[in-house]
């Protein structure tokens, strides 16, 4: 123990506990404030899918290994299956449903169609949310795209076409 410990840390107060039963959670999603009654154990993914009927984010593994559930929290791409919804209070959640503006497809969505960057479509919302974020992160080299999209499995293996879609959006910018 260091000598500094003489100045013992002020003992904090025990924090208020919410749950384990359903609690009211204010969840800002795609620019709209939603209120859901959920148990604290509910993941952001399940809150979106089961409570807000926003089923664009997909449940591929529920273990953080596939990327199909990728959404943005405060503008960053994250895995909604390993994020608790209750922890997102006061943060801005963006899902694939919030990407198109006034019904006009985002450039990445158009590029995915144009480059045939999907087949079954199940990983696609996660791929697109990841791809848009990747370019905003400034990781735009061809090799960076390969690596930067490797957190999103596509079992149909449309990978070369996914890269082509990302590059086409990059090159248009």
């Amino acid at each position: 123990m260091s000598a500094d410990d003489q100045a013992l840390t002020r003992r904090g107060t025990v924090l208020e506990e919410r749950g384990p039963g359903p609690v009211r959670v204010a969840l800002p999603v795609n620019g709209t404030e939603h209120a859901v009654e959920i148990e604290p154990r509910v993941s952001l993914l399940d809150a979106l899918r089961e409570h807000l009927q926003l089923t664009g984010a997909k449940k591929g593994c529920d273990q953080g290994t596939c990327g199909a559930c990728t959404v943005w929290v405060d503008g960053r791409r994250v895995l909604s299956c390993l994020t608790l919804a209750v922890a997102c209070e006061g943060r801005e959640v963006t899902t694939i449903e919030g990407l198109a503006e006034d019904g006009a497809l985002h450039g990445m969505q158009q590029a995915f169609i144009a480059e045939d960057a999907f087949q079954c479509g199940y990983c696609t919302p996660g791929q697109i949310m990841s791809a848009v974020a990747l370019l905003e992160e400034g990781r735009t080299g061809d090799e960076e795209i390969k690596e930067g999209m490797s957190g999103n499995l596509c079992r149909c293996a449309a990978y070369p076409n996914i890269r082509a879609a990302v590059r086409s959006v990059r090159d248009r910018a």
Partner: peptide, 14 residues
């Protein structure tokens, strides 16, 4: 191009 593209890229495909 795939005709089911729009629902798949917008997340509206159920």
């Amino acid at each position: 191009a795939r005709l089911d593209g729009r629902p798949k890229v917008t997340g509206s495909a159920r």
